[in-house]
Design a protein around this nucleic acid. Structure first.
Lengths: 288, 288
DNA sequence: CCAGGAATGAAAAATATGTTTCACTGCGCA
DNA sequence: TGCGCAGTGAAACATATTTTTCATTCCTGG
C-alpha cells in the first residue's frame, strides 16, 4: 500500500501504469477502467462503476486503498476536482469558438498538424476506396484464396508491410500463407514452386519493384492465379492478374500512405475468414 | 409544478429563465446558482450545494420538484449526463458501439459489406486518433529520433508491418534504422547493443508479445529511451516509455486493424523528415 | 389586528451509498 | 496430502445523502 496517495490525476495515472503488472486480476480490471473512463469514476456511484468493470463494489474500495487512499470516495474526489478544473463551465458556443481559434493558430509545420493532415487524407482515401472497389472483385478473390492450396505474398519496400500483414493474418485464420520475403535474396528461389493450385497476391506501387514483377511473371508462367494490389491496371504486376485492385492511397507531401492498401488486405482476410475460415481467430483475446 | 421535466440542460435553462420572476426568494437563489454553476449541481452533494446557496437541502428538492422532477437526484442526473457527453465528445468506445449496432443488423456480411464496415470503422479510428494524440508527444518523439544515433524497431506478429514500415521509411529519410526482426530467433541477441544514444520504438498490442516486452525491458536496462505504440498505458511496453502513444485501432469481428497505428508511424516519419530529414529523396528512388 | 396560507428551516425518516467483515476458492509450497 | 495465504464475492454494517414531515415565520387581505 502506497504511503502517499497521488493528489492529482497525472501522478495517479503514472502510479497505476507503474504498478499495473503487480496488481491482481480484478484490480487490473479496475485499473484499466479507471484509466480509460476517468469521467465515470468521478460521476457515477461505486456500484455502477463496479458493474461496468464486472467487479464487486468492494474491489473498487480495495483498489483505492491499494493506491493509498482511505477509501473509494477519497479517490473519487480527485476525479471530481479534475472535472471541475478541466471545464471551467464555459458555455457551449464559447468552447466551440475556442476550439476554432486553436486550430487556426497551429503553425503548419507542427507534427500535430501533419497528423491532422494525414488522418484527413487517409479518411478521404478510405471513402474513395469503398466506392470504387467492385464487389465482384472481392468475391472472386475470396474464391481464389479458398480454392488455393497456398497463398503466396509478394511485396517489397513500401509494400512489404501489406504483404507481411496478409501472411500473418491469413495464417491466423488457418489459411496456408507464405511470404516471399527475399531474405538472403532468395525471392526467385522461393517462387519456382508456384503452381496452378496456388494463388499469388502481389502488391506493388510505382516505381514498381523488379522483384515483385518477376514473381508475378513467374506466377503467370507457372499458371498460378494472381491477385494484384497496385496503383494502376497498367502496372507490370496487373497485366496478367486474375483480379486487380486499383488503389489510390493518400499522399501527403510526397509520402504515400498505406491505409487504403491495408484496408483492402484486411477486407480480403476477413471476408475469407467469414466465409471459409476458422471461427476463432485468436486465443486469449481480452475483451473490454 | 411542471408536467414535463426538461430532459436536457438547454431546455431546463430556458424554463428557469422563463419562470424566474414567479419563483419564491429562496428558489430564486437556487435558480441563479443552478444557472451559474451547472458543474457543481452534477458533482456535489445536496448539502454542499445547499450551503453554497445559503439554503436548506430541502429547498433544493423543492426547486427540483417545482420543475417537474421527482426529486433533486433526478435533476442532478441531467447535469451528470451533460458533463459526460460534453467533455470528450462521444467517446471512441461509444461511437464504435453505435456503429456495431448498425452493422450487426446485417447478419450476412458480403465481402463488399466487410469493406464498407472496415472503411467506416477505420475512419472512426482515425478521427479519434487525431483528437487524442498529444502534440507534445509527437514533438518529443521527433526530438528523440533526431538525437538518436540509431532507431531500433521492435514489433512482431500483428505489429510487425508497422515496425517494418518504420524501418523502411526511416532509412529512406536517411535516419539509421534497424528492425529487430528476430529472424533466426535472434531478437535478444540483437538487442544487447541498445544504448543511451539510441532510441527504441516498440509496437505491441494485446495480447502482448513477450519478445517485444523483453526488448522494451532491455531498452530500459540499457538506458535507451523508448517510444511505445500500444493500446494502453498499462501495457508492458508502456511502463518505462519516454513517450507512449495509446492507439485504439478499429476492430471488426475480432479482427483489429492497423490503420491508426500506421497513421501514427507515418506521422512520426514525416514529421521527422520535415524537421530534420534529408531534403531530397535519392535520385531514382521510390517515393517515400 | 388577526386569520389563513404560502414559504421556510430544522430535524426525523427513508433511502442510497460506501465500507468492512467473513467465508470460500484456488493455488503454491512444504 | 494438507497447510497457509492471497484474492475474491456476498452480505452485513456504517455512513452519507436525500426526502419528507412538521412546526414556525412571514406576508396578505379582510
Amino acid at each position: 500500500m502506497t504511503q502517499t496517495p497521488p493528489d492529482n490525476l497525472e501522478t495517479l495515472r503514472k502510479e497505476i501504469a507503474n504498478r499495473y503488472q503487480t496488481l491482481s486480476p480484478r484490480l487490473k480490471q479496475v485499473a484499466s477502467y479507471v484509466i480509460d473512463n476517468p469521467n465515470d469514476i468521478g460521476l457515477e456511484t461505486l456500484s455502477v462503476i463496479a458493474s461496468r468493470c464486472n467487479v464487486q463494489p468492494s474491489t473498487i474500495v480495495r483498489f483505492a486503498k491499494a493506491f493509498g487512499y482511505r477509501g473509494a470516495s477519497d479517490m473519487q474526489r480527485l476525479f471530481r476536482n479534475e472535472i471541475l478544473s478541466a471545464s471551467p463551465a464555459p458555455s457551449y458556443s464559447e468552447r466551440i469558438r475556442q476550439f476554432r481559434k486553436r486550430s487556426d493558430e497551429v503553425d503548419w509545420l507542427s507534427p500535430h498538424n501533419v497528423l491532422h493532415d494525414f488522418a484527413e487524407s487517409n479518411i478521404i482515401a478510405l471513402e474513395h476506396l469503398r466506392e470504387v472497389v467492385l464487389p465482384a472483385d472481392l468475391e472472386k478473390s475470396v474464391e481464389l484464396m479458398h480454392k488455393a492450396h497456398t497463398v503466396y505474398l509478394a511485396g517489397v519496400r513500401r509494400s512489404f508491410p501489406v504483404a507481411a500483414y496478409l501472411a500473418y493474418s491469413l495464417s491466423h485464420v488457418e489459411k496456408r500463407a507464405f511470404l516471399l520475403d527475399g531474405v538472403a535474396g532468395m525471392t526467385s528461389e522461393q517462387s519456382w514452386m508456384l503452381g496452378p493450385e496456388d494463388v499469388v497476391i502481389a502488391i506493388s506501387f510505382r516505381p514498381y519493384s523488379d522483384d515483385t514483377a518477376a514473381v508475378a511473371e513467374r506466377a503467370r508462367a507457372n499458371g498460378a492465379p494472381l491477385i494484384a494490389i497496385s496503383d494502376s491496371r497498367l502496372s507490370p504486376i496487373a497485366r496478367d492478374a486474375a483480379v486487380c485492385f486499383e488503389i489510390k492511397d493518400a499522399e501527403v507531401r510526397q509520402f504515400r500512405s498505406l491505409t487504403a492498401s491495408m484496408c483492402i488486405a484486411q477486407t480480403l482476410v476477413i471476408s475469407y475468414a467469414y466465409k471459409y475460415g476458422a471461427e476463432k481467430p485468436k486465443i486469449g483475446d481480452e475483451r473490454r
